[in-house]
Amino acid sequence: MKNKYSFIALIIFLFVGPFLFPNATITEMLIFGIVAISTNIMLGYTGMLSFGQALFFGTSAYISGLMLLGGFPLFLAIPIATLGSFVISLFIGYFCVKREGLYFICLTFAFNQMFYFIAYVWTEVTGGEDGLVGVERPAYIDTQLTFYIFTAVMFLFAVIALYKIVTSPLGLIFKLIRENASRAEAIGYNVRFYKLISFSIASTFTGLAGSLYVLIHSMVPIDQIHWLKSGDIIFMTLFGGVGSFLGPLIGVVGYIWLSDTFSIIWARWPLIMGVIFAIVVLYFRGGVSELLENLFKKYKSISRKTEHEQDIKNTKLN
């Protein structure tokens, strides 16, 4: 039942969102919402930290942008770009999942840089430093409103698909790997294979988001494939909290809103963001979603189920 309510709440958010935030901002929030929620499949559910998600976001944005520039229709560009990031994620994942922990972080980070420089040098295709410009939105989603509706529908589609994955047996295997990889191996699961699947799912949906991103400002800026973007993706996800399915979405909304707001107030706003991140890590490791949850619990201690989840989270963190 609860899931149903949350789903309704999410729908309400999609309707209310455009009144809370400027249109371009809320659209971008939804797109990065897909990124963060899917990254959480890998980060929160499977316990793998990839520092190279911008690679898939950017590559897919380039593919979709190039196809649109080449005159292909949108309903072809988006699936092919998504498929493209799926294939690349299998290739890169194959090398990366062999390693664990820090080495996995280093590898994904380094792959990200490699793709960044490919995009940077390959000017004839990607536009290099200038970015890929002049991508036109199809007429039927050209207004801000129709484009928002389009993005919201894609967002819902992605969220439902990801939710199905999380609640399927596959999702349970991911959690098992996170909790105890050697046990999973002992039971007979091929841990590397499932890690690769998890990596691919996250990367494919990140790619889907990338293929939508190109439509917002009719271009692919080169910074969307830079490793700093990968950092942003991780921070948004962690900021929201990896403990719940929709937590990362709050992270995205908070992160984009805070960075836009602080950047108006003080030119040295990254300092404030740094302080907030540090505080989150040291004191509110569950992210904003857990913070809100705790605040809520203080006022009305009714939720019994969350305690159980709390336990799961604590075992993960300790």
Binding site: K2, A9, I12, S244
Partner: peptide
């Protein structure tokens, strides 16, 4: 995992 821990939480978010 619940979709969100509770619906009221969502409202708090809004």
């Amino acid at each position: 995992k619940s979709f969100f821990s509770s619906m009221k939480l969502k409202i708090t978010g809004i």
